[in-house]
Design a binder for these strands. Structure first.
Lengths: 211, 211, 211, 211
DNA sequence: AATGAATGAGCCTTCATTCAT
DNA sequence: CATGAATGAAGGCTCATTCAT
């Protein structure tokens, strides 16, 4: 029963009936949770902080989520869904593999800096989830990375990319760098996501040049 | 008063005067803290867990450390000192800049996987420290990264490395990837630190090749 | 307003007008409450547990009962009504007082083990009711015990039973033992209600033999 | 760690050192718990009620007891220890079995009414304990009842008591009645424990007379 | 230098009940 | 009649820290 509404996501109707004047309770909780968990971390955010920020009551929260950890898990699910949607767009593009990889490499940086809170939570609070859920999240994340790796392998089989470094290594290195943006990137810094993405992609593609 | 002994580091004498049979209290606490904070995270480790694992009492801990956060800070300081020591060795080596950068790039991966707990703590629990201390730690970490970047700049000024990508970007990308090893590297996996370091360094150096 | 339907007891018509296919809401609640309160106790049974077990909704429950305590009180009333009906049958029987007392003594054991849940609730959750209702329940229970005591007094006045022990003491002792069956009797045990009733009645009647 | 002091029982020293001016924390908690659990029941007594009544803080309570249930269990253990001590005295007495059984029967009533709170808790809150602990308590209680039953069997083998009713039944009936004193006995009532014990013992012994 | 009993604020969660629909 | 989302007041429990010894 709890979390049922969260399962349906933002599609749930607005109880109270108005013309959608105020977002549904689960959505407001997810938004507040994303902000607070990224700011202070999961454990330093109390349920009271959370519901206050979301403008709901504790009871309402527990009507939709079975526990505080469940809220975190819902954030994770939303992040993954977003990532998948982003990458799907790239993967189905046309053109030579170099172009497609470059586009994906830039895009992954841009979407990361656009959802920096998500990333911060992702890499700081994954360990809070139960092992089951950790596995689940990791598996989905791996899929994401695998699509990237597939592009590299495609280029390798065409001899466009070097083959003396496993595609796995390339992908893990690139994603490591991207994931770590959350540790230092600031929206008000000198460089924007597009520029950083451009530099990162340059290094990646040059690094892949065959000997 | 508290923490004074910790400041002196492991050099402190053995209280109780024995023949050094058992390590000093602060050392045992630091070792236990490193293990537990990496395993469960800072907030999910209680002071009781900590002192139990270290085989000391709560009172003893508070004699040496002002707070639980202070223990974490001491772990951070030890990590940084270790990193600095490692890099010093590389930086003072002889030979062409390509060789020195490669050696440093491999070494940074190897020492990271050898001290994986440290890295996990580093990137998961930095936000627990007070802002002052966060800045302090970040500054020291920046120094570490800056020495790496200096190597790159050295190569750039010699036109051995490409100059169309800022050295900063190269260093941040590489360190991002290295720092992220803590999220997926497992000591019992297929590849060891030396191999991963080799691949990563290859990609780095190829990526730096001038156009 | 609430509870009005409960007042009318099981005699209420089936709302929704079906052909009596499913029992009325109050009846299903009472049955579920009897089971759950006996199993886990009143306080460890949530209203949600209760309505789930009864297959009704919370709103429906609060339509018929003013509060959770009211459901408990309704269980008590049903128990008492049942007991009264049982004893009435015995009391109006014919025959010598020894036979009538024996029959009542056996019957009280048998009906107790047949409604063990009722007894468990009775002696474990009486204190949950308001003092008013406790008194009310105790008074009715006392009537029940008084009819038993009246049989004993009848025998005493006929000198069939000893007179050196007050009938009150005899009744309280016997009912204490009977009430306590709920603490240890198990339907799948060696002895059935009839056998235990037989032994208990034997001891009772022998104990009442005049010196 | 928690409960360790409770294990040692009242023998624990008085921290704070005075001349025993104020009882130790566990003792005060046990005394308050016995009173409150008997008055209102376990679940209607909050931990705050408990510590307030005992004049200690919540933290202190959780230093000695792992949970509220643990306090209840400690009460149970104390009750059982008391009962055992009482019965030991009787069992080792001299004289004909009739006399020894009568003495035990009276004593069991007297000690019950003297520790009425204990009994009320015993038969109202046993179900709160974990199944393990319920079994443990029941087993010890059974021992208590078994010693009583052994007296009856002794008389049966000497043909002093009837043999057509199992000693088990006799003991369960008697103890049921005794245990139920908690439901109706009031210290300010007409009859004292000695008188009730006398009547109950009379009925018991007469009931055991051979046919 | 070391102990561990005691503190007390704050945590996550439960739940009987209400009310707009 | 019936629904179930929302309320809000406790509830039991944890834990970093202190302090008399």
């Amino acid at each position: 029963m709890a979390e049922s509404a969260a399962e349906t996501g933002a599609a749930g109707g607005q109880p109270g009936g108005g013309a959608g004047a105020c977002p549904a309770v689960p959505d407001r909780l997810l938004a507040a949770a994303t902000r607070l968990f990224a700011d202070r971390g999961f454990e330093r955010t109390s349920v009271q902080d959370l519901v206050d920020a979301a403008g709901v009551t504790k009871g309402a929260m527990y009507h939709y989520f079975a526990s505080k950890e469940d809220v975190l898990f819902a954030v994770f699910r939303r992040v993954i869904a977003t990532q998948m949607r982003n990458l799907d767009a790239c993967a189905t593009a046309e053109g030579p593999v170099r172009e497609r990889l470059r586009a994906a490499a830039v895009d992954v940086v841009e979407s990361t800096v656009q959802n920096l809170d998500d990333m911060v939570i992702y890499f700081r609070s994954l360990h809070v989830l139960s092992l089951d859920r950790q596995d689940q999240v990791r598996a989905e994340r791996r899929q994401y990375q695998d699509r990237f790796r597939a592009l590299i392998e495609e280029g390798q089989s065409q001899r466009v990319f070097r083959t003396d470094v496993p595609a796995d290594m390339v992908a893990s290195q690139y994603f490591g760098a991207v994931n770590h943006l959350g540790m230092w990137y600031r929206p008000d810094g000198e460089l924007g996501g597009a520029e950083i993405g451009g530099y990162y992609a340059d290094l990646l593609l040059t690094g892949l040049r065959p000997a």
